[in-house]
Simulated assay, not measured.
Amino acid sequence: MKLLSLDTSTELCSVALWLDGDTLVREELAGQRHSELLLPMVQELLTEAGLDLKALDGIAFGEGPGSFTGLRIGCGVAQGLAFGADLSVAGVCTLLALAEASGASRVIACLDARMGEVYHGVYEKIEGEWRTLSAPGLSLPQQTPDVAGEHWTGCGNGFAAHGEILRSRYAGQLVEVMPDVLPHAAQIAVLGAAQFKRGLGMDAAEAAPLYIRNKVALKTSER
């Protein structure tokens, strides 16, 4: 399977080509420059691999949660490329991508959602397959989901922004915290390939960001 993947959900802009298990990657801390960087990175990878977009089997993208603007850019570019090359797409949850990046089997994934909140999801890998124990959600860090047992890994920049609260929240249950991990196209590719193999690709017109939150800033009265 040959798959293009991309993620623009955070300040990190990343693109990957999945070539039957081998992966080529481009990444850059983009700030607000995702729309400027994304397509040139895609073209660089295709040129390096000697492939045309139409030779691919599909496109996977980080559907969210994450930055509203970043998610719109990533989804829009995935749709545009897919329409032009007549390819299917697969949206991959960025929190699940954090779990995949951690290398652990029991993961509490948290992304900084700003406004004093975190996006969160809880995952466990059993016999090589991820199971969602708590679906992606949004809450104050002290109100993240309960987990059972020990040997959990905390992953994502939510643990950088609210580390003290989250470590206290899961006191005695965490064996490791990985606060610097961000969603990345390399893991989007792995998870996207699995979705395509299960027949879960969709028409580009059906692709949509997973926002979770419905506003991007607090009103003055809420601050």
Rank of each mutant, 00 (worst) to 15 (best):
L45I: 12
P65S: 07
I73D: 04
D57E: 12
A60R: 03
L39A: 10
T69H: 10
L46H: 06
G50A: 13
S88H: 08
A30E: 10
E48Q: 15
G64K: 03
L39P: 11
P65C: 12
D86H: 08
T69M: 12
Q43R: 15
K54R: 14
Q32A: 15
T47A: 15
P65D: 08
S67C: 14
R72T: 10
T69A: 12
L45V: 11
A82D: 00
G31K: 01
G70S: 11
Q43P: 04
G50E: 09
G62C: 11
A60G: 11
L45Y: 02
D52H: 13
E44L: 12
L71V: 05
G74L: 07
Q79L: 11
A78F: 07
G74K: 06
G62K: 02
G62F: 06
S67A: 15
L38K: 03
L46M: 14
R72G: 12
L37N: 04
V42I: 15
H34D: 01
S67W: 02
R33M: 14
G58D: 09
A82V: 11
L37T: 12
E44V: 13
S35G: 09
F83V: 02
F61W: 01
A60M: 05
D57F: 07
G64W: 01
A85R: 01
L39M: 14
D57V: 02
D86A: 09
M41P: 02
L71S: 13
F68S: 02
D57Q: 07
D57Y: 02
V77Q: 05
G31P: 07
L51W: 11
G80C: 10
L81N: 00
A78T: 08
D52P: 01
A55C: 07
A85H: 03
S35H: 02
L39K: 05
